[in-house]
Design a protein around this nucleic acid. Structure first.
Lengths: 190, 190
DNA sequence: CGCGCGATTGAGTAATTTCAAATCTAGTGG
DNA sequence: CCACTAGATTTGAAATTACTCAATCGCGCG
């Protein structure tokens, strides 16, 4: 699948665009390729873009003072990733974004997004819908955190995204679930 | 302050509307008053509205199979509350909304919100901005959950919303922090 | 072969939970 | 004004869970 087709298919789940509209939209994206381990957003960076994943797997994460990592999101193909706090509120990044595997992404700048939203109503709707979905997902994860123990959260994650098991080192899964890798290791041995 | 002034002041932080636009917007809200303890949204309800708080304090919460309560949000004046998953995805409510104190709210239906967003660009922008802010707040809370212990989360909440201490029973604070009330009780005695 | 990284295991420790009992408080009716 | 009650809060003690730290294991790669 071409980048266009991937983005097109993703949009089509929520809104309808004419071919002209879609091509215009697509023309604002900048394709970018990264190697495994490369950093896209660093703490204290100015954040100008959000990233639509075409191929590979990214992670957004926060590092505390003890260098302990907490993963906010694994971003797989057709997912969006950025430090949305930094991007929307024009402050420096507090979370980082980097590549778990080699990755191809499409970058969209904040200014272009705002411009496009003004020009094409369906896109404004799309981005509003996406924000809302993100909000709902974050709330669900919060609930799962409060309600379920680590084993339950692990099984939830694995049934939702089985691909992760092969792609992502176990210690990153632990950093997503909010447990130590030792605890995670003890979970799936009966 | 009148309901108009409260809503107006809230909007003005994000967007600018002419008086005519604002009055048109305001005309779609239905004022409603509730007594302490009254339920606004129940599990399995169809959710048609979101609620803008004018006075009082609401809570949105999830109840698990053991009847244990987890609070997603305390909604104070100028906050919005609903089951956004139910409202946006047109499914039945999984979280409940009720009144911690007597409360005055303004209701806006999902259809009216969509109509208004189409008619007035600034409102579409406002609601997108609000969703995004909600997303960022939920992510921050998630991080705080993973990174900080209960005492730290308690102090964070209290420094952010000191009013809560007087209005809200301690066990509800515990249900927000994700700890038992016994643990919370032990936190603030040195 | 041996290095290095990720994953596992063990043991002791810290934090939180549960359950039960005691205490406090606000509101009610006499 | 006081006694009473329901609900909220606190306390105690035992049990559970996850954490840390340290040591070991397993495997791919130069």
């Amino acid at each position: 699948m071409t980048p266009q087709e991937i983005l097109q298919g993703h949009l089509a789940k929520t809104i309808h665009l004419t071919d002209d509209e879609f091509n215009y939209f697509f023309s604002h994206f900048k394709p970018q390729s990264y190697k495994k381990g490369q950093t896209i957003i660093n703490v204290d960076d100015r954040v100008n873009c959000e990233y639509f994943v075409l191929k590979g797997c990214l992670k957004t994460y926060y590092m505390n003072d003890d260098q302990k990592m907490f993963i906010l999101q694994f971003a797989m193909p057709t997912w969006w990733a950025s430090d949305y706090n930094a991007l929307y509120n024009d402050v420096k990044a507090t979370v980082s974004l980097d590549c778990i595997t080699d990755a191809d992404v499409l970058c969209l700048s904040g200014e272009d997004r705002e411009k496009l939203c003004k020009e094409i109503y369906a896109l404004e709707y799309f981005f509003r819908w996406r924000s809302n979905r993100g909000f709902v997902v974050a709330q669900k994860r919060l609930l799962s955190f409060m309600n379920n123990d680590a084993r339950h959260r692990y099984e939830e994650l694995m049934s939702m995204y089985p691909q992760l098991y092969n792609i992502v080192p176990k210690q990153l899964i632990a950093a997503y679930l909010g447990v130590s890798r030792e605890t995670l290791s003890r979970l799936y041995q009966h």
